[in-house]
Design a protein around this nucleic acid. Structure first.
Lengths: 358, 358
DNA sequence: CTGAAAGCGCTTACAG
DNA sequence: CTGAAAGCGCTTACAG
């Protein structure tokens, strides 16, 4: 008879509820709930019956009902301009891993850089009462025509917040740029150009600061060069085109990110120069493409999965009410040495290009 | 006075509930709900008051309460072995876009290829009553020790299901391989090798079939060659090493995916050969790295975002009860011609490598 | 056209 | 140590 009962239950087509468990264990639903959340308050014998009933029914609490009752969801919303960005997706993995380990789900919001979509997500979040938020954007989406929405506890990654008090988890950009510069200096370079726009993104600005500091420390202040570039491959290539209109060429390019470095390499190659024989180039981020360039790009690797995990762990702590005492968590950048850095070329280079000497 | 009332409400720190709206509009919550979901059943004047109250309070229905009541969540769970795979992430974007457009949220599950984690997600899904599921894995995660879990409506992408009746949305792999082969043939190649493992993944098997069909149609059956390789860059490189132990070299390599093609190109370059002068190479997928190879890889582009949107649209239809009449939705592959295909090299090549002629 | 009431599945004081 | 009951915010028959 009891046998028949246990055999019957799995045939139910709808998932088991706490009611099913209670009935099978012959206790009240309150006791089932207690057995799950405060087992020490339940008699051992009762607990056993309940555990068995749970196993038999395959019960797991309906998360929606639980959230509704508790007034807090177990979803974290990640808002990113582009979830397919190779720089972002490993962070998502870290976020997801840590969230899941704590029973939370990661909901994904892809804004395509469109602020309007960001606002939509905020609404969505509000409706779902997402417990917390991870921002990849450097700012909180907002609609000037609407009152500012309530924000749940939030953490910024990739790009520090332009203003406001949301804590940031990311690489130490300044230190990374510094490491790259030291490498170039160690190879004997003295004329080093920084390529990138340091105004658009705060993270890029910090790389620039690292560069400036290193240049100053090495006493190279006068020979430093800065070329504006928007952080894209095209921008890197264009910077090279503009550069060759000038006379005072650098021997090495410290690029604000890998895309820029790839563009610089393409521009150089198109002009018939060889990297690293004629010019040295460094990137930043270590995107997957960095290893497909030839030669492979020397760059800084962002500890992306770790960033994600750290950020989620911090958010979880904030959810527990432990204030974000630390406004910034900076992770160690890793120098990845591949093939784009060598000693400076003898000066002056043959500037006519394709048929230049070796 | 009314003024004061409307000014007061936004100061509430907790989000507005249907109760707040009802109070402000001086109707019952039932009428508010009706005004939202069946406006035609509500008097125009009442509707106006309610609309105003909604605007003032910034109300949007608590999704958890709504789901609980309706017995159906508005979350879709996507289970992928690696959400950072450049082949997958644009699909996620498509999925997310279409889901969001229909008021659903996309929850992400990253299994790292670990079946155990897949099972965890199934449990999670069950607890959350996810309305539907997108599978990137080609199989349903399952635990042999547990009864099979109930599955919500599901759609497979990237990899068709090994068995079972879950509909698939993806590129037409067979046709894509065929297009690549035609291109090679048009350039004059007659000795063409297929590199890849056609057993591990069904999608790869289909590419192999396209290759076989094309070879047969061109009457080349006897000269076709197949080299086993596991679909990784390393595998591609290793296949080249093994190949050069033999005598009957092909003039072109049709690789099962871009990673393999990249490995093949590296292997060839390492031996001192030039692509496409000495050998032609094609890939499949058009991963972002394909354009960073030099020369750029000629390949097939998967319409990834479209795959995501199609898949989600199909899932949404299934959720409405419109059966998945069509077991497969095959999207058109795009041939992307870059620089790795040229005419076959004169035979025999100088096999000693680095100092070869021309 | 509108409101009172039931109920989705849970958790947690409150009694006992 | 355990159970009855309230209530989270919603939607939808059911009356009127």
């Amino acid at each position: 008879m009891g046998n028949i009962k246990t055999l019957d239950l799995p045939l139910k087509t709808t998932p088991a509820t706490i009611e099913d468990v209670a009935r099978l264990a012959e206790v009240s639903i309150a006791t089932v709930s207690r057995a799950i959340h405060m087992p020490e308050k339940v008699a051992a014998s009762t607990r056993q019956k309940i555990d068995h009933a749970i196993a038999v029914t395959g019960y797991s609490a309906n998360a929606m009902a639980r959230s509704l009752r508790l007034g807090r969801s177990n979803m974290i919303l990640a808002i990113a301009p582009d979830i397919s960005d190779p720089n972002f997706s490993p962070i998502l993995i870290g976020l997801e891993k840590e969230a899941r380990a704590n029973g939370l789900g990661l909901l994904i919001g892809h804004t395509q850089g469109d602020p309007l979509r960001g606002i939509e997500y905020l609404k969505f979040m509000n409706a779902h009462q997402a417990a917390g938020m991870i921002l990849f954007t450097g700012y909180v989406p907002s609609d000037p025509n609407q009152p500012a929405p309530r924000l749940p506890p939030s953490v910024a990654v990739v790009e520090p917040m332009a203003h406001g008090s949301i804590p940031f988890v990311g690489v130490d950009d300044r230190l990374g740029a510094r490491k790259l510069l030291e490498l170039l200096l160690a190879h004997g370079h003295r004329r080093i150009a920084f390529i990138g726009d340091s105004r658009a993104r705060l993270a890029h600005h910090r790389r620039r600061i690292g560069f400036d500091e290193g240049v100053a420390a090495a006493g190279l202040r006068d020979s430093q060069m800065v070329l504006d570039s928007d952080g894209t491959l095209e921008g890197g290539r264009a910077a090279i085109e503009r550069l060759f209109l000038r006379d005072d060429l650098p021997t090495a390019f410290l690029c604000v990110n890998d895309q820029t470095a790839a563009g610089v390499m393409m521009g150089l190659t198109a002009r018939g120069y060889d990297v690293p024989k004629d010019f040295s180039v460094t990137g930043f981020d270590d995107i997957p493409q960095a290893n497909f360039l030839s030669p492979g790009l020397t760059t800084i690797r962002q500890p992306r999965t770790a960033i994600g995990q750290e950020a989620m762990a911090l958010l979880l702590r904030m959810l527990e009410g432990e204030g974000a005492e630390q406004p910034e968590t900076l992770l160690m950048p890793d120098l990845i040495v591949r093939g784009t850095v060598g000693p400076p070329a003898p000066w002056p280079l043959n500037r006519k290009g394709f048929a230049k000497g070796s």
